[in-house]
């Protein structure tokens, strides 16, 4: 068992409380060979008390990692994680996603975090320091929640959205401005007999256009990692890449199998960073990350 006070090796946990899902990651971070994921979980909240869900997932993830709570050098939260009482510290969402994005793809110099309620483009440097950022407007049409609503109207499971979108042959254009108009568009498309793959692809294209505009407004260039819940939507990723090519955008869109965990990973990594930074000032955190 590793000791939390051993400076060479640190065990940290990151908890990302989103509006629809909670993600937890437990990391082993070593000064010599970097960080690796010991265990991670993502679970939808489904109308339960988020703080209780987070506690339960943290316990499960720690058990899977073979780590006891008091071995953690830092419990870092992000997203709505201020509700977690046992946290050592909280990091703002884009700070955490930037760090998590860099961990998952060291070549990334920007991320686009697409969550249930909004999307956020973040430009960063090689240390994951945030240089600029832009968020989607208050309209829900650029969010995962919107896509979830549409899938419900169409009777399609969330996991099917991406594969179906990839089957489209004649995508139908959809309003990119307003969720209400977009939903009306979808109802019209259904009544006009447009196939579900073409409807979904049209929505993906509409969302992709918005995300590219967000990225362009930050000045992003080069590798952009998609993070957040929608990073797993292959249809959306395909639409983003196609749109980037068509528009001659200077970005290369990438995703990672753990993209959904980027916030939790970034928080855990910043936690380890803080432990080392505080240690440099002679401040030690106690068992379980207590300062």
């Amino acid at each position: 068992m590793l000791s939390p006070i051993e400076p060479e090796v640190l065990l940290t946990a990151g908890i990302d409380v989103g509006s629809s899902a909670i993600k937890v990651a437990v990391l082993r971070e070593a000064a010599a060979d970097g960080a690796r994921i010991l265990a991670a979980r993502c679970e939808r909240i489904r109308r339960r008390e988020p703080a209780n869900v987070a506690e339960a997932i943290l316990r499960e993830t720690l058990a899977a990692a073979g780590v006891a709570l008091d071995e953690l050098a830092y419990v870092a939260t992000t997203g709505e994680g201020e509700i977690i009482k046992r946290r050592t510290g909280h990091f703002y969402g884009m700070t955490a996603h930037a760090r998590g994005g860099l961990f998952l793809d060291p070549e990334a110099r920007a991320i686009i975090d697409i969550g249930a309620l909004y999307a956020r483009a973040v430009l960063m440097d090689e240390r994951a320091k945030v240089l600029s950022h832009r968020m989607s407007s208050q309209c829900a049409s650029g969010s995962g929640q919107f896509l979830e609503n549409i899938s419900r109207y169409l009777g399609v499971a969330l996991a099917e959205i991406g594969p179906l979108s990839l089957q489209a042959d004649r995508p139908e254009q959809c309003s990119s401005i307003c969720a209400v108009l977009a939903e009306t568009d979808v109802i019209n498309m259904v009544s006009r007999g447009i196939s579900i793959p073409n409807i979904l692809k049209g929505i993906h294209q509409s969302m992709a256009g918005r995300y590219l505009r967000l990225l362009a407004s930050t000045g992003a260039r080069g590798v952009v990692l998609v993070t957040g819940g929608l990073a797993a939507d292959r249809g959306l990723l395909s639409a983003l890449r196609e749109a980037a090519t068509e528009q001659g955008s200077p970005v290369e869109i990438r995703s990672h199998e753990n993209s959904v965990l980027a916030g939790a990973l970034g928080a855990a990594l910043w936690g380890a960073f803080r432990v080392r930074k505080l240690a440099g000032k002679g401040i030690a955190l106690g068992a379980g990350g207590q300062r």
Partner: peptide
């Protein structure tokens, strides 16, 4: 405030 706190603690 969140980004300000992050910038103090991290940078």
């Amino acid at each position: 405030a969140g980004t300000f706190a992050d910038s103090i603690r991290l940078w």
